Amino acid sequence: MNSRVDQLKAFDRLLTIMDELREQCPWDKKQTMETLRHLTIEETYELGDAILDNDLDEIKKELGDVLLHIVFYSKIGSETNDFDIADVCNTICDKLINRHPHIYGDVTVENEEDVKRNWENLKLKEGKASVLEGVPKSLPALVKANRIQDKVAGVGFDWEEPNQVWEKVEEELKELQEEIKIGDSNAIENEFGDVMFSMVNYARFLKINPENALERTNKKFSKRFQYLESRAKALNKNLKDMTLQEMDVFWEEAKQLPK
């Protein structure tokens, strides 16, 4: 691997290129934080895909794209004398030191859960009105549910055992079934949301990331369905004209494919 000197040299090279692009490239010169925002979100999702695929070469490339955006925002900030890349780095360094008193202070911790509780308590001491302030409003609902539960657990608002959480899941499922019998669509939606929220909570107790789990299933389903499509096409058949029983034959074949 590269030495620290080489790492710093590479980072300096990136900063220099960013300066040159901002001065000379018509597209780069026009960008603002607002125009970059949606691109940054897209790059983050692409990094997430590469991580789920365990494609290390692609992860390296996508990390570069995300890093470019961080440097880009910092360059824009420096042009208005609000902040530059050094301020960005020092801000996160200061935060990490302050939030890890068990490393840089005299606090003792026993495990990961102690660290998380200390982290959230320190945020409140820093002036946060709520532990939920750090959950972005624009997060997808599934991710947001996981982060909300993780945040409140950090201050002790949590179940004690996984079986308690599963009992809550079963309770919410029964309530959903009752509302389905009644037929009130608003009530059904509310109860369905409660089921999903409780399932996200259960995933956390199983130490499973629910977003990753669902995305893996999305990929698995897509792969199998595309196999079904290819088999049908090879036989000059249209899926719309096939029965479920016919499609199920190909679906079962798809389930035997290597994962």
Rank of each mutant, 00 (worst) to 15 (best):
D84A: 01
K29A: 10
E58N: 14
K137T: 08
K237P: 00
M196C: 00
Q177S: 14
S3R: 01
D28R: 12
V155L: 10
A129T: 12
G183A: 00
S3H: 00
L15G: 08
G77C: 04
S198P: 05
N90R: 12
L36I: 08
I76W: 03
S185K: 15
D12T: 13
I92V: 14
L96R: 13
F11Q: 05
Q164E: 12
F11C: 03
E252I: 08
L176S: 10
Q177I: 03
D150I: 00
R37S: 10
V249F: 07
R37L: 11
Q31R: 11
F11N: 09
D82E: 06
A129E: 10
P136T: 04
F11Y: 02
Q226M: 02
L8N: 10
G48M: 07
R4F: 15
R204H: 02
V165Q: 01
L63M: 13
L206E: 10
R37T: 07
L56F: 15
K125L: 11
A145W: 11
N218F: 07
D49G: 07
S78G: 06
A232Y: 10
I51K: 04
L176D: 03
G48I: 02
V71E: 12
L56I: 15
S138C: 15
K116C: 04
D65E: 08
E58M: 13
T16Y: 15
M1E: 11
M18P: 02
Y45M: 13
E191P: 09
P26T: 08
K60Y: 06
E167N: 02
V169L: 04
G193N: 12
N54W: 06
D106N: 08
E215L: 05
P136R: 06
N186V: 05
N54C: 04
K220D: 15
W166I: 14
S230A: 09
V115T: 09
T44M: 04
C89Y: 06
K9C: 02
L122I: 13
L139V: 08
A141N: 13
N163P: 00
A153Y: 00
A232Q: 13
K29L: 07
L8I: 10
G77F: 03
S198Q: 04
F11L: 11
G105C: 00
V88T: 11
D106A: 10
L244K: 10
M247D: 01
K123P: 01
N90E: 09
R4W: 13
E189T: 11
L39T: 14
L52E: 15
L68R: 08
K125E: 14
K237S: 04
I17P: 02
I180G: 01
L14I: 15
K128W: 08
D114Q: 02
R4P: 14
D82Q: 03
K123T: 02
G193M: 03
D53H: 06
D53V: 06
I103W: 14
F225R: 13
L52Q: 14
N146T: 05
N81T: 09
G154S: 14
E42A: 09
G193F: 07
V107N: 03
D28S: 12
K223I: 07
L228V: 14
K137A: 12
S198G: 08
